[in-house]
Nucleic acid binder design. Structure first.
Lengths: 196, 196
DNA sequence: AGCTAAAGGCTAACCGCATTAGCCACAGCT
DNA sequence: AGCTGTGGCTAATGCGGTTAGCCTTTAGCT
């Protein structure tokens, strides 16, 4: 009964939807096959292995997240760009926790891995956003890493249920973004005495 | 040939050492058994399952990390306490990436899970450290979450190899800690216009 | 000092899940 | 109509976690 008409892309997309529902650790070929109305071994006609599937999902996630962040920053600058970009990233991770987990579990497989340009596009958006602040060129890399650390850390802690319910997580995120904004505005001074 | 003399604690400790070497994803009962000079099924006389083993490792990790942070903060305050505590946490994660991953993969199993007091002790250290800054009481929770986010995010990105080699990761961490310190010193002002 | 029972090791077996091998039907081209 | 490649399927393999049941050593008791 040839009916399913699967392709590597459609399998990846279905895998991405599934992984957001069941979590990265619970992703299995059997579950995905069932979802697609097909027997497990049939999937291997479209993806080489579960590892490759996870990698494809990771690339998809990076691409989608990169687009979301770029679009959010588009047309804004400074504090507005930071707030919009940070919110876009947080929203993406909340809506696609499985894909984000897949992206975090992935390491580039080689120099021509499409995961590399996908993540570079994310980096480029953050860099563009940071250029709206008056930072010393030598500090830009540190600011970038700090920014990535907070956003990544917040997003993973949030999806892992790491925050108790005492206070609004939304408020905390707003506070966090504002905190970063203020620090970046304080600019060069914040790093000049780094050797304190 | 009864020779091994294993206990739940010794199995957990060996598991912790192993997981730091091979990574959380590659932890297996077979590997641990081999390490202990025993056949796989024998481990089940000491731990109920691999999940329980991982959970015990997680509790151990939280306890050790909590101790390290408390000791680092001990006798210091303000910026010094922040720098020492942050460095202690980063060092712990770098030296024990597998245990830290185990801790992150763990959710409390119930109200009397020893994982809960263990993580509360970590929180208490951070809270004590933050009390060295002049923060509005209502903002303390946000500052805490922001602090946890950066430190957790930096540590996980670092161990995952998420930072390229262009610039020193040590320098970035120093910059990050300094950035947070400056922001916390700026104090109440940094949150007062959170609704911007 | 010998007896007994629990502790803790072992082998054999089970099960789920990823993966592979080999088969077969249908679609499109000639 | 026949040929061939695509994409499905069933059957089988192998690994890793887990369970069942056996057997020896050892601690404790009398």
């Amino acid at each position: 009964m040839p009916k399913a008409r699967l392709t590597p892309a459609s399998v990846t997309e279905a895998g991405a939807e599934l992984v957001d529902e069941v979590g990265f650790d619970n992703l299995s070929m059997g579950l995905l096959a069932e979802r697609l109305g097909v027997k497990t071994p049939s999937l291997y006609k479209h993806v080489a292995s579960q590892a490759e599937l996870a990698h494809r999902i990771a690339v998809l996630a990076m691409t989608e997240a990169g687009d979301a962040i770029r679009d959010a920053i588009q047309g804004r600058s400074g504090s507005d760009a930071l707030a919009a970009g940070a919110q876009a990233m947080r929203t993406y991770v909340r809506e696609h926790p499985g894909r984000y987990a897949a992206a975090n579990a992935t390491r580039p497989t080689g120099p021509d891995d499409p995961f590399i340009p996908a993540s570079e596009r994310v980096m480029a958006s953050w860099a563009a956003m940071l250029s709206g602040y008056d930072l010393d060129p030598g500090q830009k890399i540190h600011a970038m890493r700090t920014l990535r650390s907070v956003l990544h850390g917040f997003a993973t802690l949030e999806t892992a249920g790491g925050f108790q319910i005492d206070a609004s997580v939304d408020d905390s995120f707003t506070w966090l973004v504002n905190f970063i904004d203020q620090g970046l505005r304080a600019g060069p001074a914040s790093g000049s005495d780094a050797a304190r």
